[in-house]
Simulated scan of single mutants.
Amino acid sequence: MEIVWQIKAFEALTVIELYAILRLRSEVFVVEQNCVYPDLDGKDAQALHLFGTYKNEIVAYSRLFEPGIYFENASIGRVVVAEPYRKNQWGRDLMLQSIAAIQNHFGESQITISAQLYLKKFYESLGFVAFGKMYLEDDIPHIKMIKD
């Protein structure tokens, strides 16, 4: 099984790609995690969009920000893999692609994320370190994590 990775600025996304990305984010964050929150936060236009396609379907996605948009450092957000494909470890691949893209596109090595608390060990395995205390973001426990 081979996933094909692409990275695009917001205005370079096709309507079909944007629809598939928003659908994937909605399926996981709103439906699966039962979280009503403002996914369309006005920041998509400021992000680079990294997505993985398998059999012509977008199955993995993250959005990447330059320093100062979300955090002082560059950041990765909306990290999502469609449920049927999580067993393939594409979440790890997605994060490795995201980290490399931030370094390549923004020239940054320090990255901050707002991680769902249950994924803390996963992000630690990628070199992120937790900072501060747990906090609720949209009623889901999160923790700030930074990778140097």
Rank of each mutant, 00 (worst) to 15 (best):
L126G: 00
H142P: 12
K133W: 00
A115S: 14
S98W: 03
Y135R: 12
L126C: 00
M134K: 15
G107P: 02
M95W: 01
Q116S: 08
L119C: 06
R92W: 03
E137G: 13
A100P: 01
F128K: 06
D93M: 07
E124L: 13
A100Q: 14
K133M: 02
F122V: 13
D139P: 02
E137S: 15
G127C: 09
F122K: 06
L126A: 00
Y135M: 06
F131R: 14
L126W: 00
Y135V: 11
S98L: 06
M134F: 04
S109C: 07
E137T: 15
I140M: 11
Q103L: 04
D139C: 04
E137P: 13
F131E: 15
F106C: 03
L119P: 03
R92F: 02
I140D: 06
Q110A: 04
Q103N: 10
D139S: 12
I143T: 15
L94P: 13
I143D: 10
Q103R: 14
I113H: 02
I111A: 02
I99K: 09
P141R: 05
I102T: 05
I111T: 03
I102V: 13
D93Y: 02
L136S: 08
L94I: 15
S98F: 04
F128W: 08
S114T: 07
Y123F: 06
M134V: 15
K121V: 07
L136C: 08
L136M: 12
D138H: 13
